[in-house]
Amino acid sequence: MALTREQLAQRVAQEFQDGYYVNLGIGIPTLSANYIPKDMQVMLQSENGLLGMGQFPLEEEVDADLINAGKQTVTMVTGASIFNSAESFGMIRGGHVDLTVLGAFEVDCQGSIASYMIPGKLIKGMGGAMDLVAGADNIIVTMTHASKTGQSKLLSECTLPLTGKGCIKRVLTDLALMDIEGGKFILRERAPGVSTEEIANLTEGELVIPDNVPEMAV
């Protein structure tokens, strides 16, 4: 079975390590904050200028001056810090953020990612995504493996305008966890009950299937 949004978030959280500074994109990445193990300290970076983002506020705690990158009201954890946008992207561009998790429309086996624009349809802008993919070393892209009409989103070459070129090394979809190495997708884990054939059929870019591909622990 394909992973649910909650299971995807759960699998993302398995990449967290104690003491990590993490930037989570909007959607499934943000959900993964709910699965940080209790015995682990992870500090969330919000690119609008907050390190140490907490949960959503109680009604009486709502503060218009305290939002996250998705413009939602949030709180701060103990030990949080505030800074301006140039400083925020300095820490992103300077490689100080340990892990970045973000969504995408397409990823290709050269490690390129398209996530911000569908020409003629959707013009919203890249926000901080281009800086995040260019600045971070450890990035996980989360998305569905195929579109609603069954078109692969794991391509030999992205068709949409790129957010970043050759910068993605790990992709988690609802069917599989893959690394990108030497111009190929390498299948590392599969969703419980999903066969390697099923994954191969929905992967347009070149896919390497090792002898042993374990099921994800979610």
Partner: peptide
């Protein structure tokens, strides 16, 4: 890009005419 925009403003105010960034390459 958001970080480039922030840096473009910072550079403008700090007398730096231009800068190189990996953001947006390709």
């Amino acid at each position: 890009p958001q970080g480039t925009l922030a840096e473009k403003m910072r550079a403008g105010g700090a007398g730096i005419p231009a800068f190189f960034t990996a953001t947006g390459y390709g």
